[in-house]
């Protein structure tokens, strides 16, 4: 059986886990389910995870992807961790605004600003 390709690039820096999507489109339910499983595993293997999900290079997403992010937000909160999102294009940010999920998530313009905000939260 062929090994399943990862949908994510994961990098741990100074206690913060930074996740990038490998796909430019986060649309299809099947791949979204796999992304959700990868992120769940990531949360389960880190204590009080400090997670930054970057949307750099992501050009498209669907309501199923939004659902996956909402579940992730809940899982991170239950694990007493922190979730931040960054690098969301104007087109995709509009989807967050229409659904008012920009109010639910901690969204930063760039990964750099998001990383800085983690240390601001600590102090």
């Amino acid at each position: 059986m062929p090994e399943q390709r990862s949908h994510l690039t994961i990098k741990d820096t100074d206690g913060i886990t930074v996740v990038h999507f490998s796909d430019r489109k986060i649309l299809e339910e099947l791949s979204i389910r796999e992304i959700g499983d990868e992120l769940t595993h990531l949360i389960e293997t880190r204590e009080n995870v400090q997670l930054l999900v970057s949307f750099k290079n992501v050009e498209h997403l669907s309501s199923a992807a939004l659902g996956m992010l909402i579940k992730l937000n809940k899982q991170v909160a239950e694990a007493e961790g922190t979730l931040k999102l960054s690098d969301i294009s104007a087109q995709i940010y509009e989807v967050f605004k229409i659904t008012r999920l920009n109010k639910l998530f901690d969204i930063h313009e760039t990964a750099g600003r998001a990383l800085t905000s983690f240390s601001e939260t600590e102090t």
Binding site: S63, M68, I70, K71, N73, I98
Partner: peptide, 10 residues
């Protein structure tokens, strides 16, 4: 905070 029900809205 619920994960579904946004398709028709979009």
């Amino acid at each position: 905070p619920l994960p579904n029900g946004r398709g028709i809205m979009l």
